[in-house]
């Protein structure tokens, strides 16, 4: 077991899991309690356009995905709340639009797209030091913003109508929260890829919700839970020679089912 840590790529992979767990542990809590799983999935998929843009421009796809995911988060938030188009319809349309843009950009790019698959389904064993630095910075941004707006995000998540009545700028905060979701997706993209990202954004938080009495505790528990799933998934994928992202998701789903089973037994 310990000999795995001698490999540089294993150390990086473990660090990536810790950094990813912090982001998805914190933001996943808001996604679960505010029930915005669908829009989060939409932002994740639409950000594929950013990956395509990165290939097209010949830059690191991370620099394409950051602005692209933030813009799609804002557009989705505004279109779903400020127009008469039903929210789920708006999300569905922008979800598909982002992905098609990505496909078109990649088609227009010269040559072929190396490791495109790793952005879709994750490739934790190829995480570079640059990736880790980007993840660390985004984690710090997420922690800082949540720390500053903890009261406001709590009011917004618990009862946004009442929050609006007492003057909380709910629309702006909602858009800010969607931007944090976009950044979290960027943090997670190397670990599980944009297609599978929604699993890490929901499962750890859903498990921790069952045992937590307040949001802060729920965040710490879900960070811990997602780190445990990540490490187990990583080891299993290495030993069984399976795709890492998909294995982590499978471990999370099994963990979720186990928790549901234990909950049933307790009754």
């Amino acid at each position: 077991m310990m000999e795995l840590l001698q490999y540089e790529f294993m150390k990086n992979a473990l660090l990536a899991i810790i950094l990813a767990s912090i982001a998805c542990g914190i933001i996943g809590v808001y996604i679960v309690v505010k029930k915005i799983v669908f829009i989060s999935g939409g932002i994740a998929h639409a950000s594929f356009g950013g990956i395509g843009l990165g290939y097209f421009l010949g830059i690191n796809p991370v620099w394409g995905i950051i602005p692209f995911s933030i813009i799609s988060a804002l557009v989705m938030g505004l279109v779903s709340k400020r127009t008469k188009i039903p929210e789920d319809t708006a999300i569905g349309i922008i979800w598909a639009l982002g992905m098609s843009l990505g496909v078109i950009f990649i088609g227009l790019s010269p040559g072929y797209a190396p490791d495109l698959f790793s952005y879709l389904f994750g490739s934790i064993l190829t995480v570079t030091t640059t990736d880790l630095v980007v993840m660390l910075i985004l984690d710090l941004v997420i922690i800082k913003v949540v720390f500053l707006f903890y009261k406001e995000f709590l009011a917004l998540s618990f009862d946004d109508e009442f929050a609006t009545v007492i003057g909380v700028p709910t629309m702006k905060l909602y858009l800010l929260l969607l931007c944090l979701i976009a950044l979290t997706i960027v943090v997670l993209v190397r670990v599980v890829g944009i297609i599978l990202v929604i699993a890490l954004l929901t499962i750890p938080a859903a498990i921790s919700k069952q045992i937590s009495t307040n949001l802060k505790k729920m965040m710490f528990v879900s960070i811990f839970v997602s780190a445990v799933f990540g490490v187990i998934g990583l080891i299993l994928s290495y030993q069984l020679n399976l795709a890492s992202g998909a294995t982590i998701v499978m471990v999370s789903v099994i963990g979720f089912l186990l928790c549901q089973f234990l909950k049933l037994c307790k009754r």
Partner: peptide, 28 residues
């Protein structure tokens, strides 16, 4: 204005205490 909605739109399993709910009212 103090507002008491008909069915407050909240999740019954939301991890929040009674005191925290009331404190939200102090936001302003």
């Amino acid at each position: 204005i103090g507002y008491v909605p008909q069915y407050p739109l909240f999740d019954r399993e939301f991890p929040i205490s009674v005191e925290e709910v009331v404190l939200i009212g102090r936001w302003g």
